[in-house]
Amino acid sequence: MDEVTRIQQQAQHGHAHQADTVHLPEPTAMPMVLALGISLLITGMVTHWVISLLGLIFTLRAIVGWFFDVFPHEKHIDVPVEAGILAITTTRTTRDQLPVSADHRKLLPVETFSITSGIKGGIAGGIAMIIPAAVFGLARYHSVWYAVNLLAAGGFVRWAGESNAFLAQFHLEGLLAATGIHALTSVLIGLLYGAMLPMFPRKPILTAGFVAPLLWTGILYSAIGIISPILNDRISWRWFILSQIAFGLVCGFVVNLQVRVRTPQFRALPFAVRAGIHSDNIEQIEQIEEAEKTKPVDKKDDYV
């Protein structure tokens, strides 16, 4: 305890403290008495009013007692500190480093896209996806609303038995529900693109425009019967794949247009690369990563 603190405490409490003691709050029965008082107070509701009266007396006594426990100064006790040495040691004196694959850290990108990139991509892809969906509705049912209502039908159980003609009409609730579902899904998938594309930097168009939409379609194909049986009965998978590809191409394009941000992996690069004096080409990055492999990334100690 420094001298300034000691003087401050003396001024506050009006007496000195031992340097080898610790201040702790003084034990008090008031919390217990207050708890008992409140408990008895309400127990009177189911027993007898005298119990409540007793509880009220306890409660008031405890409030007064508690007040004087903390005002004008909080009561405390000085507990002497025990002397001695507690050694913090271990018998486990050797450490193992877990083997790390040479390719392990190469999977982590040095740069990635910001979260807003994914959102922008999702919005753009979502808009692009509307075009083939609308064309599908016009070509087959002469209405742009068919695809909208079909998407919304997952949320309206009562639409299960409705005709195609009904789904081809405009329904405000259908438009609102479909907009909500479509917007949410598009943004979430856009975020996934933002996170995923830096992991596959070599063929972004192939990844974003074709591989991801086909994978997504496969997942939905297996699950759509549970998520939306109505959609499952009436969906046209060829048109669906076309709209997914439209989403993937546009979303991937928009995401790739955005400025990249650096990940913590970037810190592993030498200052010259980070400062832009040297280009951070892939060979250099690989050299750095090779050097990084010698650093322990996960450790455990031997059980001796």
């Binding site: 702790l24 217990m32 708890a35 008992l36 903390v70």
Partner: peptide, 18 residues
């Protein structure tokens, strides 16, 4: 060294116990 409100801590225990 202790909870932020030691007396409230005791009160909380006792009222639960009751």
């Amino acid at each position: 060294r202790d909870m932020a409100f030691p007396r409230l801590n005791a009160f909380s225990f006792w009222i639960s116990a009751f």
